[in-house]
């Protein structure tokens, strides 16, 4: 057995080449994220200060000020979105698992996939027609609903997927003890899938928190402090968009700071979802 036959050398060379290509791809995939972080933090961190979190936007020409209203606005918007989309999305996911082959399920699955692919600006226009035009005013509610529509397919599909992973034996065990189907789902199947569903919801929240397009014609923007749901409301993304489009140096800096906060919050949601999952999982595994 010669260690260095031609075939052997070729095989090693191919193996090596594939390895290098894969490693290079991994590095390449990390580059955009690294660059985003680099540029945003380089411009954004110096612009970040306490005032940014606590103060209101200042009129053009007056330096300083912050985006307190926009941050609260974003929280309110995603709060509305979650309230609207989470119960409906989870219930829908339960239906899809319970009645896997029903015609309604096939239709719902298909529309969830389509909805997931609809560009966010289209969802914004839809929400404008449905929730802004009839009331003749931009409202936080309309913005939240637009974000909720974006969250819906994500929650439906994660719920369905995770419920599918729950061992059928849990369900059987519950039914054999005289539980109704609804009872079995509510008391055993859903709790077993909960850690994953929570993660899915948090990921969906992080995603819609960074959306601008659905908010442009729905919640619009507000230079003033407002927590009213029936008024236009500021949001970080729209504020960043507005400031970045402005000709003012000071507003540009504010936009960078806003972008930094957005990125930080995405990071925060990701960590939170991991933490939530781990804790819940540990509870399930029995090491708690």
């Amino acid at each position: 057995m010669k260690a260095t036959s031609a075939v052997d050398l070729r095989r090693r060379a191919v193996s090596r080449a594939v390895e290098v290509f894969c490693a290079a791809s991994v590095v390449l995939a990390l580059v955009p994220l690294g660059m985003i972080l680099f540029f945003v933090l380089r411009q954004g961190l110096p612009a970040l200060n306490g005032a940014f979190f606590t103060e209101m936007p200042k009129p053009v020409g007056e330096p300083g000020g912050g985006m307190a209203n926009a941050m609260v606005g974003t929280l309110i918007l995603i709060g509305i979105a979650a309230l609207a989309a989470v119960p409906v999305g989870i219930a829908c996911g339960v239906y899809l698992t319970e009645y896997r082959r029903a015609r309604l399920s096939t239709a719902a699955r298909f529309s969830a996939d389509v909805l997931n692919g609809v560009p966010s600006i289209v969802i914004g226009i839809f929400a404008y027609q449905a929730a802004v035009v009839p009331f003749r005013r931009f409202t936080a509610l309309a913005g939240g609903l637009a974000l909720g529509v974006m969250m819906l397919p994500l929650i439906i599909r994660t719920t369905e997927e995770l419920l599918g992973l729950v061992p059928p034996s849990y369900r059987e065990g519950s039914l054999a003890l005289g539980a109704t189907r609804a009872r079995a789902v509510w008391t055993v199947v859903l709790p077993a899938a909960l850690p994953g569903i929570v993660t899915g919801v948090l990921v969906a929240l992080a995603r819609v928190a960074g959306e601008t397009a659905p908010l442009l014609f729905t919640s619009f923007n507000n230079q003033f402090w407002s927590t009213r749901l029936d008024q236009e409301i500021a949001s970080l993304t729209v504020q960043v968009y507005t400031y970045a489009n402005s000709p003012y140096e000071d507003w540009h800096r504010q936009a960078w700071a806003g972008a930094t906060v957005l990125i930080a919050s995405v990071l925060f949601f990701s960590l939170l979802s991991r933490f939530a999952t781990r804790r819940l999982e540990r509870m399930h595994r029995g090491t708690a």
Partner: peptide
């Protein structure tokens, strides 16, 4: 009529 299954299936509770 109670039932015990082949694979023990305690709920994650």
């Amino acid at each position: 009529v109670g039932m015990v299954f082949q694979k023990s299936n305690p709920f994650p509770k």
